[in-house]
Design a protein around this nucleic acid. Structure first.
Lengths: 245, 245
DNA sequence: CGGTCTCTGTGCGCTTCCGCACATACGATC
DNA sequence: GATCGTATGTGCGGAAGCGCACAGAGACCG
């Protein structure tokens, strides 16, 4: 995490906020509040009534489902391309999953009431949020498929790529234990898979720090799931007309 | 499937349509078109640009993802409680998954343009659609978790219950082969799991016809995933204020 | 009634992943 | 630089599920 002071923070670092029209930005930005997101913090718990939505700028937040048995699985992951708390505007106000900071950093947050106010005005923001939500749906669906059919090796590649896309550098601060919680597998399974990648020179691993050395190779080794999610996100969220009606 | 003629069809059999205010129904219903959905038909293919949304009344439609290898997995399932084609109003117009009729019957369909027209009027329908979409998201998330952590036995129970809730009687017309495609497992795995349930007197199985004999027991044998999805659907879709802003 | 097709049941070797038990290695801290 | 906590590597036995091969059994049809 880059120290807050040194960071030239601005809301436009979040790609959703960046893609808004000047008019909407002018109305929204004064109400944004910059908050630090330390590693492991729960942005919200399962069943919580949400008050804010969060726009990460240099952090990653995982939507994680933890079962009665304690076993867990990551449902989707959100970084600078997205927003945490879609259930707030989808109408549910809460979800059965938990949002955990997976990579420390910052986010801008906005009161739910402000967001809804803006929805009522014109719709541009609403339709952007909905397209993002559809991209999120794709990610969840693909996670389900991947959990069913792909090996830990493949899933690790997918996961590394998804995380990478949501940050800036080629480094991840992340223990194998944490990764195993996200993938819903044993820690030893991650050790083994990561060991293979390291031997192949694709990543270098060192006590909770992953550096990606050969990204193209990583993409080859990943299952198709990464590409599907990436393609669909790009399709839905880059340079489209503001209104989709 | 009940023959069309014998069926006293009306749009209110679909629970989403039923829960609309009289005012909105008056505007929407004249534009609904009743269509038969034969078993196995693709309501839409991966990547198709959608023109209609579908409100099933006595049919079940599965959202299925088919991979390059031919392996498949069901992402979610839609019946009389829901709508097929959410990506149309979410702004994406298409999705990477396929919608397949899993249980033959009928649905009312509506032109996407009509739907959007109604969205612009007032918002009641939009907010209902969004809440439903959130319930669908919960189902997808839970599918991902279930695929990771639960046995075929448990998943079969979950799947039977979900399907049951979306129909009227205690019978399902469904071969083990088809179920295996939905769950993304081997057909033999389904044979074994179904055999256990039959021995326990929970279901009776007969060449593509499942009759559920002991539903409470089925719920006990299922993993928690069914209950989570059910609870969340009920929370989001029963007797709530029309406007959630 | 006999043939054929589809659906269901069963067995077997194999792979992947899990659970557990340790061994090692890094790094922060005093 | 000794110590201790945390992160990582390894090696079992066992369970679940897969791929394959094939056997029975109901349904449909001429």
């Amino acid at each position: 995490m880059i120290p807050a002071a040194a960071l030239n923070q601005c809301p436009e670092q979040n790609l959703l906020l960046e893609s808004l029209s000047a008019e909407v930005r002018e109305r929204i930005f004064p109400h944004l509040e910059l908050v630090p997101l330390p590693l492991g913090q729960a942005v919200y718990e399962s069943g919580d009534t949400l008050r804010h939505v969060y726009f990460p700028i240099d952090s990653i937040v995982s939507l994680l489902y933890v079962m009665e048995s304690g076993e867990s699985a990551e449902i989707s992951v959100v970084g600078k391309e997205g927003i945490v708390g879609v259930s707030l505007f989808m109408g549910g106000d809460s979800t059965p999953s938990r949002a955990i900071v997976q990579s420390a950093g910052h986010a801008y947050r906005l009161l739910g009431s402000r967001l809804k106010e803006e929805f009522n005005r014109h719709g541009e923001l609403l339709y952007l949020m909905l397209r993002y939500t559809q991209a999120l749906i794709t990610q969840m669906a693909q996670t389900a498929v991947c959990n069913r059919h792909h090996s830990i090796d493949q899933q690790l590649c997918r996961w590394l790529l998804l995380s990478l896309d949501r940050l800036n550098g080629p480094d991840l601060v992340m223990t194998q234990e944490l990764i195993s919680n996200m993938l819903g597998v044993r820690r030893e399974g991650v050790t083994e898979a990561a060991g293979k990648l390291q031997k192949a020179g694709v990543i270098s691993y060192k006590r909770g720090r992953v550096k990606v050395l050969d990204r193209p190779r990583l993409e080859e080794l990943s299952c198709e799931c990464y590409a599907v999610v990436k393609r669909e996100s790009d399709r839905l969220l880059t340079s489209r007309p503001q209104k989709t009606r």
